[in-house]
Design a binder for these strands. Structure first.
Lengths: 345, 345
DNA sequence: TTGTAAGCGTTATCAT
DNA sequence: ATGATAACGCTTACAA
């Protein structure tokens, strides 16, 4: 709406009523006669009246908008999450304001400040890979801003959070490689700052140990920027191949890591899975397309987005703003596309 | 910000000044003494004052937010566009409010109504595949809402628009297949409602004609929902294979169509490009990953998003709201990954 | 140089 | 059943 939007005043004037009467009539108040109500409603319809949400926000001190912070929008996992977030928000009449951290702590702080200054009613955040403290979030949280973490979760804040069972996903992915006969399974993972990285790494290690295989530190490569910077992934993969015993399989723990790894292998002229096997976390289309070359751990991103938003809105709209307990919702499961990685003997 | 946000009033009270003085001091007005300014600034700093954008919006009748309507967020092409939009908006202190049409005209109208009711200052839109009139946009536009089209452009509205040279991209893609020796080149394309579909289809046809090849209508399949519904793509591809003369190559004109087609071919047990060649529009990671199996036409999505947003903000912030001329900005180019599709003889 | 008051669109409180 | 008024946070004539 711009220029000449109809206001409650216009209706009042047209009908020779007061603004308060019109306001009440529109909200179907019991103290207004049916007759007047009908009149007002008709007039509102005729003038195409739409309540001004900004005036409402000012009055009610709520903006009906929620902030979302992710590292990157152009990432299948996160765009699917945003899809889920948007679907719930839209249903409930909320705006979604999106900010990207580009994996930078500094930028994340700026995002938070921006969103706070835009008076969001709540915050959904998946922290940047550089983030390893809660100071910036704590100050907002202490001021009463509801916050829900998703995927990348930070400890130390009394909030809801939504994520998958990272340990299990990683364990099963690794187990799948082991059962397919691979002996030298490497792991490409994210920053150690991120709890999800550690959970996934632990899953990988535990799987190896369960099958009496050694955990070789040389086979574990951390990519601090989690694949956002391709050269970092390339370097990490290359390092794996400098080992005396070259790995015969790689397990990658994120979307970008999986595609980055594939790209590097391709550049080295290695075919998957003929030359080397690959199992990775991914929500990309490639999951379907590269099948059966690739086994993939797919996160229920859309559902994660929905769940996180539902928790947030529940918190925002809860009458009693004091919620005693933190709640961590582990979403259903990871999906491993079996039958893909060929067995070797 | 929630609970006890500092207001201009608090500062005024603390300093024994009036709110107007504080307001002016904060805006560095010439009529305020340096001394007072310093005092106010210090106090604002101390109390961690942040202007309330909602109050500002109400006063200035602008929300500093722009609406974006796309068919789907979880689509590489559009998420890259949004990335571009977000980057410009963020730089200039604007919110981005995103709505999805899910390729539904009806939903698009609802989105528009939602965004308008949220008082967006401007609108960026890539219309749904079902949309073939401008009525819903025209009413907003006539009321003074700046609108910029991107990618999927609608004629009949005096606005800026940003897109790529669809004809050229399609022509070159088809030419590439022809030069690689393919004789029976099919085309999988979107709804005829969309101008981009027609431009791309024309590019395909013109390329064939330039090389004295016949345009066979049986080789042209339209997918109304542009790949959003997989079954539709599958059916279209299957139809191609019911022809007496089966195609030896397919040209697909959008992201989802390309992945959907690949998926279908895979399900039919056909290898690309060994069994059939494929060249398609795509901004997906697969472009890199399936190389050299796949030749891809990549759109400068990020740049398109940036350009569209710049045009919109320029229009929003222009002092003289009457802009005489429509401007269509054709972005640089399409990128064809050459060397990929193997030559056959 | 600073203060007063009106207004942006809406609702809640208190009249009448 | 309806109206007048204040308030939400901020800016800006207009006064002083």
């Amino acid at each position: 709406m711009k220029f000449e939007a109809t206001t409650i005043k216009d209706i009042a004037k047209a009908l020779g009523l007061s603004t308060s009467t019109v306001s009440r009539a529109l909200r179907d108040s019991y103290e207004i006669s049916e007759e007047t109500k009908k009149l007002v409603l008709e007039c509102a319809e005729k003038l195409n009246y739409r309540p001004n949400p900004i005036a409402l926000s000012l009055k009610e001190r709520r903006s009906r908008s929620i902030g979302v912070v992710v590292c990157e929008i152009a990432n299948n996992f996160f765009s699917q999450i945003i899809n889920g977030i948007e679907s719930v928000a839209y249903e409930r009449g909320y705006n979604v304001i999106i900010a990207q951290s580009h994996e930078s702590y500094e930028r994340e702080i700026m995002d938070l400040q921006f969103l706070a200054s835009r008076s969001v009613d709540g915050l959904l955040i998946s922290v940047s890979t550089e983030t390893n403290d809660t100071a910036h979030l704590k100050s907002l949280h202490d001021r009463g801003l509801p916050i829900v973490f998703f995927d990348r979760i930070l400890e130390g804040l009394e909030t809801h959070s939504v994520g998958v069972d990272n340990f299990k996903g990683a364990y099963e992915a690794t187990e799948h490689l082991i059962k397919s006969g691979y002996k030298r399974i490497a792991c490409l993972t994210n920053s150690e700052y991120l709890s999800i990285s550690n959970e996934r790494l632990t899953g990988y290690k535990e799987a190896l140990l369960s099958y009496k295989m050694n955990v070789k530190e040389n086979y574990i490569q951390h990519c601090f920027y989690g694949g956002m910077i391709f050269s970092e992934v390339e370097e990490a993969v290359n390092k794996l191949f400098t080992q005396k015993q070259k790995p015969d399989a790689i397990f990658t723990t994120s979307d970008k890591l999986t595609t980055g790894c594939l790209k590097t292998l391709h550049r080295r002229g290695l075919k998957v899975p003929a030359d080397i096997a690959l199992v990775g976390f991914s929500n990309s289309d490639i999951a379907e397309l590269l099948h059966p070359a690739l086994t993939v751990v797919r996160q229920p991103a859309y559902e994660m987005g929905r769940a996180a938003t539902e928790l947030l809105l529940q918190q925002i709209e809860s009458k009693r703003p004091i919620k005693q307990f933190e709640k961590r919702v582990l979403l259903p499961e990871l999906t491993i596309r079996h039958s893909s990685t060929p067995k070797i003997s």
